[in-house]
Amino acid sequence: MAFPTRDPDFEALRFELSKLRADRGWTYDELAERSGVTRRTLIAIETGTTHGRLESWFRIAQAFGVDLGDLLKPL
């Protein structure tokens, strides 16, 4: 049985989050309000301090109106 040979690309995922937020012109406060994820957590995810919880990514995807799988695709 073969196992995955590459690691997740969290940097690409952080970049995607930053890009989506910038494309909409949303501040961290606006995304926090729309997603229910705290501003502090959003900043930590974008700066790489944390990878975030799956629940947070789910809420972020909903706020952007995209499927979770599409949001996580760069991973």
Rank of each mutant, 00 (worst) to 15 (best):
R34A: 15
R21H: 04
E16M: 13
L20F: 12
K19F: 08
R40L: 10
H51A: 14
R34D: 02
L75E: 03
L42F: 09
M1G: 15
D7Y: 03
L42E: 00
G48F: 03
S56T: 06
R14V: 12
F15W: 11
R39T: 13
P8G: 13
A32L: 05
K19V: 11
I45E: 00
K73Q: 09
T50A: 08
L71C: 02
R24M: 03
R24N: 07
F10N: 15
L75Y: 09
A63F: 06
A61L: 00
D9V: 11
L20D: 05
K19P: 10
I45M: 11
L71N: 06
W26H: 03
I43Y: 14
R24P: 13
E30Q: 14
F10A: 15
G69K: 09
R59G: 01
W26V: 03
F3W: 08
D7S: 05
A32H: 01
A12E: 05
T38Y: 07
P74K: 11
R40F: 12
L72H: 00
R21A: 06
R34C: 07
E55M: 13
V66H: 02
A32N: 03
T50I: 09
A61S: 04
T5R: 07
L68R: 01
E30T: 09
G69D: 12
P74A: 06
R40G: 07
I43R: 10
D23R: 15
P4G: 11
I60P: 00
L31R: 06
I60G: 05
S35W: 02
G25K: 05
A44N: 11
M1L: 09
K19Y: 08
A12D: 07
A63T: 01
T41H: 15
T27L: 05
T38F: 07
L75P: 15
V37K: 05
L20W: 04
G52D: 02
G48E: 01
M1H: 14
T49I: 04
T49G: 01
F3V: 12
G52H: 02
M1V: 14
S18K: 14
S35E: 03
S18V: 14
I60H: 04
R24D: 02
L42V: 05
D9F: 12
T50N: 03
F64Y: 13
F15V: 14
D23H: 09
A61E: 00
G48C: 08
L71A: 03
A22I: 09
R6G: 07
A22R: 12
F10I: 12
H51R: 15
E30S: 11
L75R: 15
T47M: 10
D29A: 13
P74V: 04
G25I: 03
T38W: 11
D7M: 08
L71P: 03
G52F: 00
R53E: 08
E46S: 11
E55L: 14
K73W: 06
A44V: 00
D29M: 06
I43V: 08
Q62A: 04
Q62R: 09
D67S: 05
F10Q: 12
A32M: 10
R14Y: 04
A32F: 00
R40T: 14
W26Y: 02
